[in-house]
């Protein structure tokens, strides 16, 4: 018999560690994928997921059983990532600036078109250059495919603010892909 998330959470509240293990097993993949896309590095993403599940455990009794567990976890994971981005932002030294891709592309065969695989690689490079809010909104909405409303809920933002950050993020990314195309086409 397969328990729902809510049932497992209720069991976990009674101290049932096996139920908690199953919650972790069931949801760590999505949480990891979200964290990796926001933070960009595997080790950072795994740390963030671990922190998110510790928060889940600490606040088991705050989970609202009337709502999906996945939304709650998204919100917690997003918060953990945002905290990390904010503190990383303060320490940031600007090691990865626009311009890096131009050197890389001109090393390649200039006649080569951008392939799907490269697109993903470039995107993974460009996302970390977005400011934290735009980055979060873009990843939740366009990469994790949450609705605008789900994104707003997970980030504790208004719909209006999600839309404007989404537009800013998309615009920047579009410009960078555009620049990439131009560079790639140079003889």
């Amino acid at each position: 018999m397969e328990e729902t998330d809510t049932e497992l959470m209720l069991l976990a509240r009674t101290g049932d560690e096996d139920a908690f293990r199953r919650i972790v097993e069931r949801h760590q993949g999505t949480a990891y994928s979200l964290a990796l896309r926001i933070l960009g590095r595997r080790a950072d993403a795994e740390d963030a997921v671990q922190e998110a599940f510790i928060r889940v455990w600490r606040h088991l009794h705050r989970f609202d059983t009337g709502r999906p567990f996945q939304s709650w976890l998204n919100r917690i994971t997003a918060n953990v990532c945002l905290d990390r981005l904010k503190s990383a932002d303060r320490k940031r030294t600007g090691e990865m600036r626009p311009g890096a891709e131009e050197r890389l592309v001109s090393d390649d065969d200039p006649a080569r078109r951008l392939e799907d695989r490269d697109l993903v690689r470039w995107m993974e490079r460009f996302i970390p250059d977005l400011p934290p809010k735009q980055r979060m909104v873009f990843v939740l909405r366009d990469v994790q495919d949450m609705s605008v409303e789900e994104t707003a809920e997970a980030l504790g933002m208004s719909r209006r603010s999600v839309i404007s950050n989404l537009c800013l993020g998309r615009k920047t990314l579009a410009a960078r892909f555009e620049a990439l195309e131009k560079v790639g086409k140079k003889p």
Binding site: R21, V24, E25, Q28, G29, T30, Y32, S33, L36, R37, R42, A45, E46, V49, Q50, L114, D116, L119, V120, W122, M123, E124, D142, V143, Q144, D145, R170, L173, A174, A175, R176, F177, E178, A179, L180, E181
Partner: peptide, 24 residues
């Protein structure tokens, strides 16, 4: 640029990164 960015995002949606084996 928009089309390329959208395509890249779509490709990313289609693959889910796998965490390392000991994460659980």
């Amino acid at each position: 640029g928009m089309r390329l960015a959208a395509l890249a995002a779509e490709r990313m949606r289609q693959t889910q990164p796998i965490p390392s084996a000991g994460m659980t």
